[in-house]
Computed example of a mutant assay.
Amino acid sequence: MSKRFAEAIEDLARGIGAGSFRSEAEISQGVIKRVLHELGWPVFNVQVVAPEFRIGTRKVDYALCHPAGKPSVLVEVKDLGKADGRGQKQLFEYCFHQGVPIAVLTDGREWSFFLPSGQGSYEERRFARLDFIDDDSSHAAETCERYLNFDRVKSGEARQRAERDYEAFRRQKEAASNYAAVWSRLLGGPDPLLLDLFSEEVGNETGVRPEPESAARFIRNQARAAVASQGKPKRTRTKRRKVAPVPAKVGRGDPPSFTFRGETETFKSGAEVLVAVFDKLASLDPDFCRRYSEQHRGKVRRYVAKSRDLLYPGRHRPASASHRLPGGWWLATHCSNPGKVKRIMKACEVAGLKFGRDVIVHIPVGSRQGETA
C-alpha cells in the first residue's frame, strides 16, 4: 500500500466533507476515477475501465475489465447517502446477468464490497465496508488495494482474497450467533479460566485476591441478572458498524501468533506474543511505554514501568516474569492468557491501532499454554 494513495484518500475525504462533490457525476469523475487511477487502472482506456457499461437493457456505472471488454469488477456509483438497499438490488441484478466476481457499491464516501456468488441476502454477501471520512486512511487504502488493485484483479489474486474474506466473515457471523449461549454457560459455571482472570484483575486493582467461592458467586449473580434483563428488551437504535476484512480463522491447535498489518510471526507461547506486540509498538513510538504506563495500571502495581520492582510490588517473581522494552521500560509478562489478550487490546488503544485489524493475535485461552511461571 503506497503512502501516496493514503494521502489521496485523505484529500478526497476533505473534499467530501467540504461538499465539493455535489452530484453522482461529480463523485464519479472526481472520486471514483481518481481512486481507480491510484490503483493502477488505465482510466482513459474505455475497453478496460468501461463507463456506462451496458448489461442487457441496463447500464452499470463502471465495469473494470480483464481482458478488455470482460468485466471482473462492477462499480455502481450513487449520490452521497444513497448507497443503500435499493442500490444493492440494482447492482446484484447487473452481476446476475454478467457473472462478475466482485461488486462495489459506493457514494464516494462509503464503499461496500460484495461477493455476488455468496449465499444469503445482499447484506450477507458483503464482506467488507469502509468510510473515507471515518476510517483511517491507511486502512481504507489497504482495503481498496486488496480488492481493486489493477494487477491483483488481472492475476486473480483480488478474487481469491475476496472469496477467502467472505468465507471468513461468514464463519465469524455463524460463531457470533452462539455468543450468548456460550457466555451464559461460562458465567453460570463459572469457567475456571474466567474465574481466574476475574480474581487476578481484582487482585491487580486492590492488592487482595478474592476468595474463589465469593468471586464465583458474584459471577453467577451477574449471569442471572443478564438472563433476567433479556426478558425485558429495550428499544434502542443501533449504530451501523463498518466491517473490515476478517482474517482467516485460526485453528484451536495452531501455535500462538502475532500479525501486524499483514505480516505474521508464530511463537512458542502466549508470553512471547505479548512481548512481541509491546516490542513492536515501543519501537515504532518512543512515547508508547510512557502513555501505556499512565493510562493502564492497577492500584498497587504497574504492567509497564521504568523499574522492574514496580511490576510486582511485594511479590517475588523470577526474571522470566518481566521483559525489558526499548527505552529502558519493563513489561510484566506473568498473567493468564486472557489477561495477555486484554493488555494487548489496551496497547492497541494507546497506539491508535485497531485490534483485530492492524494487530491480530492468537493466544490459546482454553489452557494456560504460554503463561510465564
Rank of each mutant, 00 (worst) to 15 (best):
M1W: 02
A6Y: 04
E7M: 07
E7K: 10
E10F: 01
D11L: 05
A13E: 04
I16R: 04
G19T: 09
F21A: 03
R22A: 14
S28C: 07
G30Y: 06
V35C: 09
W41F: 07
V43W: 09
P51L: 08
E52K: 08
T57C: 01
V60H: 06
D61N: 15
Y62N: 12
H66V: 14
G69V: 06
V75N: 07
A83V: 11
Q88K: 13
Y94F: 11
F96L: 15
Q98C: 13
V100E: 09
L105F: 10
R109Q: 14
E110K: 14
P116M: 05
S117W: 06
Q119L: 12
Q119P: 02
G120R: 09
E124N: 11
A128G: 10
I133N: 01
D135Y: 05
S137E: 07
R146F: 04
R152G: 09
S155M: 06
Y166W: 15
Q172C: 03
Q172H: 13
Q172L: 15
A175P: 02
N178Q: 14
R185P: 00
L186W: 13
L186F: 08
D191N: 15
L195P: 06
E201F: 12
E205L: 14
P210S: 07
E211C: 01
N221M: 14
A223F: 00
V227W: 02
V227D: 13
Q230M: 14
K234H: 07
R237A: 10
T238H: 11
K239D: 12
R241H: 12
K242G: 08
K249V: 09
R252M: 07
G253W: 10
D254T: 14
P256W: 09
S257D: 03
K268D: 13
A271P: 06
E272T: 03
V277D: 04
V277G: 08
D279L: 07
A282S: 15
S283R: 11
C289I: 00
R302D: 04
R302C: 02
P313T: 06
A319H: 07
S320R: 14
L325Q: 05
G327C: 04
N337K: 12
P338E: 09
K340E: 08
K342E: 10
K342V: 11
R343I: 01
M345A: 01
E349I: 03
A351W: 01
K354F: 05
G356F: 05
V361M: 07
I363H: 06
S367A: 13
Q369R: 07
Q369I: 08
